[in-house]
Design a protein around this nucleic acid. Structure first.
Lengths: 121, 121, 121, 121
DNA sequence: GTGGTCTAGACCACG
DNA sequence: GTGGTCTAGACCACA
């Protein structure tokens, strides 16, 4: 379910956070469903338990997950909504990159085409 | 000409590189024009000389500037072209963010609108 | 009679202990009255029997209940007095919090007012 | 400046967080003043660097501190105000404890006296 | 079994 | 020098 690239420059715990977020958005992880345990993930991903824990703390901080000591870690009730709101803010990043592409001489049509491709998937 | 935010998460030397690149693309820095000296930048930006040097090394590595020992650092002849080619690669980033926005429920029209705005500036 | 929040940060067994204590102080649980059985509580509260047992052991340790093997668990004769003495120790906590409030700039009158409200209920 | 009780039941990193908070409120730690480095604290307090780091992350999360990689960790501009607002919420705790004290038979005067003592320090 | 905390020590990027 | 990340393992309270 999860895949880690230990050689990536993006921290392992952040890779985990991103994957959980994407699974929440796609509906693969539903509210109140339980995440694999820290130890389980640690073994199957060959990642130190501390690093898994760090990812969970981050997800908790973002309100996407709640962990119950002794029981496990669960997807928050309105995780998807919380996430959707946060993601809207990324429009700024898209605008910034589009601005750079324009400066670099990339034609507008090429950008629009790619957007269309994304939304037709 | 250059502005540094020492509190930013993005490294100081990277901020410098990005600004030089953007000035090359906008034509503000023309081929063979001279960059301010390391010492000069170090003082005016309140940045450690090592950090300035690191930015220049990076720009050199990317083929955007060339250093003449004892004289200074100059914009490369075909810096703009080099940069334009490299920037095309950022299309991948744009596609990635667009994919996230789609997942988050941002309507396609909203994305297209923003692209249009960027290209109409 | 008892209510458990399984998501709370405070352990389930502690929630149980606190509620029994409060019922003893309010007189709702009188000396020698019988507590519901472990099995009963386990079912009605959807709590693991081990957890119920742990709460009872803790109450016993504090001298608030006594268990009669084969019969059940009963409120101790002088439970209320025992509890009252113990609770006096919480004055320290109140002082600590009041100290923090003072540091945070909460005016003395506001604190006193709240104390008055509590005691006028 | 900081003191840790390794035997306390409250986590070491939380003890640190609390002490930094109190020093911010008392004005001992002023905005933009630098905290001792992670390694420094680690040695002087005989606490693992990871634990120090955890405290700093928590302080950052609360907006009381900002850390600049490679430079150090500093008190946030409006740390005191942020903290004061948060602390006001603790009035609820004080009311809860006062309620318990009342139930336990502690006379009102005794509570008020203690409040007076705190505010006269 | 679970999550939470902690130690001991390593490597990295950055200034 | 600094903070940030990570591994390898331990102990605890809790269910």
């Amino acid at each position: 379910m999860f895949q880690i690239d230990p050689l990536s420059r993006v921290p392992v715990y952040e890779q985990l956070v991103e994957q959980v977020e994407s699974y929440i958005l796609t509906g693969l992880l539903e509210p109140n469903s339980q995440l694999p345990s820290v130890r389980n993930l640690s073994v199957t991903l060959s990642v130190n338990p501390n690093t898994i824990q760090k990812a969970i703390i981050e997800l908790d901080r973002r309100g996407l997950v709640y962990s119950v000591p002794g029981k496990g870690c669960f997807i928050a009730e309105n995780a998807k909504e919380t996430l959707s709101k946060a993601k809207h803010g990324r429009m700024d990043e898209l605008i910034e990159i589009a601005t750079e592409l324009k400066l670099a001489g990339v034609p507008k049509d090429e950008v629009i085409d790619n957007i269309n491709i994304v939304y037709s998937k």
